[in-house]
């Protein structure tokens, strides 16, 4: 999972490749989104796949609770014969594969904790857990996340998606000052 990046002992430099130009990456992403609309009539997503996986676990561990709860039932009744044989689950498995493929090509696959210079690893993990939980809650209330609502809904001019997108930026910028010591 790691590649040497130090060149102190000579040899070929193996530094990670620079990131793609953001406009080129955006065009690539936009064409993938367009392909999804043209092939399927639907856009991209992410949080729905997490919900499907969560619902399957809840259904196995607490079947009585899951049976009486419309949130879990919606996900348990989806899919092609099984709740995990579901479109977004397969799409997110593809995201995992595509991200890995790109990371290998660019020599960016390595086991590391991404954090700012001023925060401990434990502190970073605690904030990652809290941030992830807020994401999960927010994405379910909004019926989608940055992929399903902001990006996909944005491209078909959904009014709710645009309201959602503005609020994501508002919330993120509003929290940035308080979190500046984590990142900068």
């Amino acid at each position: 999972m790691s590649s040497p990046t130090d060149t102190a002992h000579g040899g070929t430099p193996r530094a990670p490749a620079p990131y793609m130009n953001p406009y080129l990456a955006g065009i690539g992403l936009g064409l993938v989104l367009l392909a999804s609309y043209l092939a399927m009539g639907r856009g991209l997503g992410a949080s729905g796949a997490f919900s499907s996986a969560c619902a399957v676990v809840v259904g196995a561990v607490a079947p009585a609770h899951a049976a009486g709860n419309s949130f879990w039932q919606d996900y348990l009744q989806a899919g092609v014969g099984h709740p995990l044989k579901e479109w977004l689950v397969f799409e997110v498995l593809g995201v995992l594969a595509g991200g890995f493929l790109s990371g290998v090509i660019a020599r960016r696959v390595r086991s590391v904790v991404e954090k700012g210079p001023r925060i401990s690893t434990g502190g970073r993990f605690a904030l990652a857990l809290v941030g992830g939980a807020l994401m999960g809650i927010g994405a379910k209330l909004a019926r989608g996340c940055t992929s399903g609502q902001a990006l996909s809904g944005g491209a078909v001019l959904s009014a709710g998606s645009w309201a959602f997108m503005l609020m994501v930026f508002a919330g993120a910028y509003g929290a940035a000052w308080f979190l500046r010591r984590q990142w900068r």
């Binding site: 992830g132 994401m135 809650i137 927010g138 959602f164 508002a170 919330g171 993120a172």
Partner: peptide, 13 residues
């Protein structure tokens, strides 16, 4: 939901 998600974005990265 958007506000929560935005705050979560800055907290979680």
């Amino acid at each position: 939901g958007g506000l929560l998600l935005g705050v979560g974005f800055t907290i979680g990265g």
